[in-house]
Design a protein around this nucleic acid. Structure first.
Lengths: 347, 347
DNA sequence: GTCGGCCCAACAATCGGTTGCGCAAGAATT
DNA sequence: AATTCTTGCGCAACCGATTGTTGGGCCGAC
């Protein structure tokens, strides 16, 4: 490969100085005279010397490598999150290594170990759906490599986590719909083993409870595989002729729900209102534009990266639990239902 | 940081052997007796030894690092492409470093240089829209680091490139629409400075020419910024009351076009047919499902990664130009216009 | 005319491994 | 019993840098 790369030694030979002096000259060390520095730099220039960071970092005992382990690359959240992470990472002169666990705990374990072997300076993790505990992260603390869990995580007291305030978002969603006169809402959630999903549901339920509105279990859709959605939605429509609003907890669920509604000829928001939790991209190209509780993948990524880099550079091990609040973006997909006519509306 | 990590030396001390022997034992070198190997492995196990890859690779003169430089993280193509790349990269025990150039040639240049400093074993590049020549890649060949250009690229005779067969896809798109009786099609293209865009347009034009159909310049939309789309689309509708079909060259253009059509109450495919080049995700959640020429980001990524790894491992420098063909996926967005009634249909 | 200091640069150790080569002891050959 | 082979392991160099310590030369000062 890079068989003939110029090294410090080559420069040393060329200018007739020792490697040590060359190294210091290039580093602008005060011990070296200006004349020498200039000479060295010129030679380095003409030889087009490229420092070998790996050698440097080997000595320095760090790598300026940050690893990100994600369960999969979906089109909705990952790109913006990675963009946010990477911006901050690059700004701070680290490099981002991206791994996919393919939602397999076995892979995840292997990748975590791989991070130690690469001597990553820090690790960012979005947990796989199979991950039920965090023992496999112990190897990182053994090497004192800081970890930050983001987005999809599980209960932990030992690790810094950064998430959307999922429960609150679920609560606000339900409260918003109810506040607009929707007394029969359907909530579309994903795999309940995931904490993110459980929390959003919990908030959704809590809002109903707080506002004294009944919430049948048939109003809750738990969609583990996206192709189950259609059937579940049909069932919900059948079970609740009085349904006037649907809440979807992710973008993926949103776009597919939207599609199914279009297909069955349901008008939004005339027939059914639609509300989502989203980063705002999908809502913008669906018709009508979908009112949503907005979170920003970019912001989540940036904040996470900042925190991790802080931990790396200040050697801090303070454990945090950051929850990012969503903000409501009102677009055209939620109609206001006037005070439900007599409490037993249609039918 | 990793202050107290176990090293070969620690193991050597613990078992009372030299580092060399320990190293060989762990590497299952034939020179070492079974008994010793077992003993060493056990000690390594109990001390939970973690080899330091950076040290190893420093000696070995490679890094098993592959860098990917992308202009930006969009939600449509990047995730699947990265997924494909990363699968192959991980399978071959490399790690993928992802950089974003933010569509800036300055950044891109800097990142390329960074790759040399990190001693990446190979580089994958999706060119930024600002990139007009490939001089900044010379530093890679100086270090004999192989490069593969993918997806968005420019004319080159020196570098291996892997792209969708853009021109052919554009041609097929137009031919398909024309074949279905659409004599007045609108083509929605993006920034013409990008080769990918120019080629798809060229194919689109060529098909019209081949089939003897006129194509006014007002039938071609060149959308550099997505928010120009609406106005351009309006103009096209105004200029061509007889338009019956729209072709969009990317997913992003597709979803926004679809949205605008919905908003103006245009029915698909009754009023206007819609055809796209896509990886199939967006077409699946739009209504009606959009007929498209499918390419696979995953496949593109996988093939690219394979080729790069081949170049790395066989030290090959043969230059290739791979074009991946799209396949037609017929869904519900294109109607067949019966032989145009008298050539001046409505109005 | 020495001596203390200051500048600059060199020596050598270090980071954590890998690897060519040499060497001793036991086994095999004659 | 002397020689050659094998087996199993250690020595030391090396990858490409960084850095603590040392020391030579030159300065002015006493």
């Amino acid at each position: 490969m890079a068989g003939n790369r110029i090294t410090l030694k080559d420069i040393a030979k060329a200018v007739g100085l020792s490697m040590a002096t060359v190294s210091r000259a290039l580093a602008d060390h005060p011990d070296i005279s200006r004349a020498t520095k200039d000479r060295v730099r010129e030679v380095a220039q003409t030889l087009s010397y490229i420092p070998n960071y790996r050698a440097r970092y080997l000595r320095a005992k760090h790598s300026r490598l940050i690893a990100l382990i994600v369960p999969e690359m979906n089109m909705f959240f990952m790109p913006s999150m990675i963009a946010g992470i990477n911006r901050v990472v690059q700004q701070n002169d680290y490099s981002l290594i991206v791994f996919q666990s393919d939602n397999s705990i076995v892979q995840e374990r292997r990748l975590v170990e791989y991070c130690t072997q690469l001597s990553a300076d820090g690790v960012l993790m979005v947990l796989s759906s199979e991950t039920a505990n965090l023992q496999h992260l112990d190897v990182l603390s053994d090497c004192s490599i800081p970890v930050v869990l983001l987005d999809k995580t599980i209960e932990t007291v030992k690790h810094t986590t950064i998430t959307i305030d999922d429960q609150e978002a679920g609560r606000e969603a339900a409260a918003y719909l109810i506040g607009h006169g929707h007394t029969r809402c359907i909530g579309v959630f994903s795999d309940q083993r995931q904490r993110i999903s459980a929390l959003r549901l919990k908030g959704f339920q809590r809002a109903h409870a707080e506002l004294g509105l009944p919430l049948a279990d048939t109003q809750i859709l738990r969609v583990a595989m996206i192709d189950e959605l259609e059937e579940q939605l049909d069932r919900a429509f059948a079970a609740h002729p009085d349904l006037t609003a649907i809440f979807t907890m992710t973008d993926e669920l949103l776009v597919h729900t939207h599609h199914l509604l279009s297909r069955r000829g349901t008008r939004i928001p005339e027939d059914v209102s639609l509300l989502a939790i989203s980063d705002g991209q999908a809502p913008a190209f669906l018709h009508p534009n979908v009112t949503h509780l907005r979170h920003s993948g970019v912001e989540l990524g940036e904040r996470t990266a900042h925190i991790l880099i802080g931990m790396i550079e200040h050697n801090s091990d303070a454990m945090m639990d950051v929850r990012i609040r969503t903000t409501l973006v009102e677009l055209g997909s939620v109609a206001t239902r006037t005070p439900p006519p007599k409490r037993r509306a249609k039918r």
